[in-house]
Design a protein around this nucleic acid. Structure first.
Lengths: 192, 192
DNA sequence: GACTATAGGGAACTATGATTCCGCTTGTCA
DNA sequence: TGACAAGCGGAATCATAGTTCCCTATAGTC
């Protein structure tokens, strides 16, 4: 959300702040439409700004993608935190969360491809957000474990990995049904 | 294996046949190394031929990728057929097959990315091979169902989808362990 | 209202990598 | 062993899309 390179602590000019936001939103839309081969020109057009402006805010295309990943992880972590405040059967809360997140991912090919297709070096740039997500997930799992309703050997990274797998089947592969994939995974998570 | 455009039924010249094979092998190696952004020039160099020669055998890069996918599906189907000839507990045979295929996929980023990242139109060009694989898988599943050792609601497309998910976690994602992913999936397949 | 640092626009530049083209080579067959 | 069609090599071409550059516009400030 604040990926612009700032070398002073001066606040951004109002128009810049507005554009930054607009670019991020357009990027989300364009990446969702075109996956990782979305074009900067398209993002710029969609945002109603010039390419130069995009580059003023994000040093390159990769940075834009990373910003989107980060945003997504932050969203998932926030939802996790929210789930922690609710009361109810912990496993059920987790399942609800996973379904919700999967729907979000499905509406946005960027994440799907970002998670599945890009190299480690991009992945690592969202490490902080991921760690946070992992922490939250761990807490959700702990509660479910205590309640005895989840397979006890499942860790937060397993959840990430399995969901990554579900996301990979979200494209337009003939015959695949990611919702079924998700339900199978959820079934597997349940305590025997 | 026979993707060269032939407008007569004349057999290929000996050197052409040799080169066709060599190109396919090199493509496999280069795609395995570089994933979908392998370069035709590299394939040509590795095969010890000029780029022109590659293009004489495959109209474009996509065709090369499709040829590799087809080859892979054919291999998996062949292994499935082989499993059908063995005797032993059907579920065990299936598991052995899945593990074997996963190892193969893991040694070859091309498939992994081809399965996960490319669009429907490429996918469809391997439809015949896939259908064959599905048929074989269905037979394996039927036997396991009869033996009562597999979750009865699992179909051949589920297997494909789940394995596609496993493949998607084979990259260099920090903390992911696709072998664990596979074992979790296998566990889920088992009859309750 | 004027000044200036900050921000924007978009044409031009560049890099990358797929694809084409054509003159040369080599199997094949009589 | 010659003829010639089939095949090969790789420099040149073309297309795409990321990135830079610099001139113009404007928000913020006195």
């Amino acid at each position: 959300m604040s990926d612009i390179v700032i070398d002073t602590d001066r606040p951004l000019r109002a128009d810049a702040r507005r554009n930054h936001q607009r670019i991020l939103e357009s990027a989300r839309a364009v990446f969702a439409r075109c996956g990782p081969d979305a074009q900067i020109d398209d993002v710029a057009r969609e945002a109603g700004v010039g390419v130069g402006t995009v580059y003023r805010h994000f040093p390159n295309k990769e940075a834009l993608l990373v910003a989107l990943m980060r945003e997504k992880f932050r969203l998932f972590a926030a939802r996790g935190r929210e789930a922690l405040t609710k009361d109810g059967e912990p496993f059920g809360l987790l399942v609800e969360l996973l379904r919700h997140n999967a729907e979000t991912a499905a509406s946005d090919a960027a994440v799907q491809h970002a998670l599945a297709g890009v190299g480690e070096h991009i992945w690592l740039q969202a490490a902080a957000e991921q760690d946070d997500l992992i922490t939250v997930t761990e807490e959700l799992l702990t509660r479910a474990r205590r309640a005895g309703t989840i397979r006890p050997d499942i860790g937060p990274l397993d959840i990430g990995m399995l969901m990554c797998g579900v996301c990979s089947t979200m494209g337009d592969k003939p015959g695949f049904d990611w919702r079924r994939h998700l339900e199978l995974v959820i079934d597997m998570l349940r305590a025997p």
